[in-house]
Amino acid sequence: MSGFDHVWLEANLATMEGEGLGVIEDGALAVKEGRIAWVGPRAALPAQDAPVTRCGGAWILPGLIDCHTHLVFGGNRAAEFEQRLAGATYEQIARAGGGIFSSVRATRAASEEELLAAATPRLQGLMAEGVTTVEIKSGYGLDLDSELKMLRVARRLGAEHPVEVVTSLLAAHAVPPDFPGGAEAYTDLVAGEILPLAARAGLADAVDAFCERIAFSPAQTERVFAAARAAGLPVKLHADQLSDLGGAALAARHGALSADHLEYASPAGLRAMAEAGTVAVLLPGATYFLREAKHPDIAAMRAAGVRMALSTDMNPGSSPARSLLLMLNLGCTLFRLTVEEALRGVTCHAAAALGLADRGVLRAGLRADFALYGIGRPAELCYWLGGHPCLGRVVGGR
């Protein structure tokens, strides 16, 4: 007998192993001690006496991974959305005290308990869709205490819910308008104080930055990345969203896990990413919500061989997206991804964007994170707009 802890039978599997979706029809999956112990055709399953779940033809996929979110924040900007619909420009809203700094004020004013209470339903909505791993960034504090507060809330979300939370310090998100010394002095604060303290406290799994004309220059971003390297933390980058500042190539030079957005990334920058193994994280929610005409160059990414992930970019300003399944549809309809590219983008490639080699694929030896869906074929996850196809999740074998 096998000694498995639990076995799932009568399932169709999209393993993401190898090329394509790695489909196994009429398959079986077994778990032991929190890891996948066996996966393959049901007819080949070794004799076993473990508890069994019969899936009735449901599909099993690796647990979905939302690899770029700003899920913890205070307040929301629905009022600004109304103003924009009425004709107000982003600049007019910002001059009236809106924009990102309205979120900063709300986040600074909120207690940890208030931030936790606001973030919990956002996280639970993702979990209900089959998400088993979520990345959460800071970046709406922009001072030492508030940035660490956001990261503590993210850690608590992971501790209090059956989901894996990965954190990124994004203190280099924007320059506080009232900060003495401007961008240079604030970069010094991030690199010299906020980042080392977050690392020593074990609150950050990675460091992110926003390299753009309205945020941090390439030189300032490099200083933040140098501090991350000194602290032993990997890096990620909001790159080439509004202009081509060479963010894709900068991320590649530093061996970044991912470069995200990339609307204006050059073919040369994308080739550098492919050579470095840096994942491109596509964020169609922001493209849709901001009505952006400029899209990432998917053809150049394919030609370069860049791995493409998909994520919600859940945030109060540019992508108030609370559904990763919706991003599958937007990735296909807006960016013309194939079903295969979209589904790999929220599983194996999303795992790579977080530096997680133990998930994203249904393979013996990997972490037992997977989700069951009541669908007839995997394409339905990309096809439907809305709905609740997830029948259940297994996280770490539980």
Rank of each mutant, 00 (worst) to 15 (best):
A227M: 02
A228E: 05
R229W: 02
A230D: 08
A230V: 10
A231G: 07
A231I: 00
G232H: 03
L233A: 01
K236I: 11
L237A: 09
H238M: 00
H238V: 12
A239D: 07
A239I: 15
Q241C: 12
S243C: 14
L245V: 08
A248C: 15
L250I: 02
A256R: 12
D260M: 10
Y264F: 15
A265I: 08
A265H: 05
P267V: 14
G269P: 15
A276N: 12
A280N: 08
V281H: 10
L282W: 05
L283Q: 06
A286T: 12
Y288R: 08
F289R: 05
K294A: 15
H295P: 04
D297H: 15
A300Q: 14
M301W: 14
R302T: 09
R302S: 14
A303K: 12
G305D: 06
A309I: 02
D313H: 05
D313V: 00
A321T: 15
C332T: 03
C332L: 00
T333N: 07
F335T: 01
R336G: 01
T338R: 09
V339S: 02
E340F: 00
A350D: 12
A351F: 04
A352G: 03
A357E: 13
D358G: 12
R359Y: 04
R363L: 13
G365N: 01
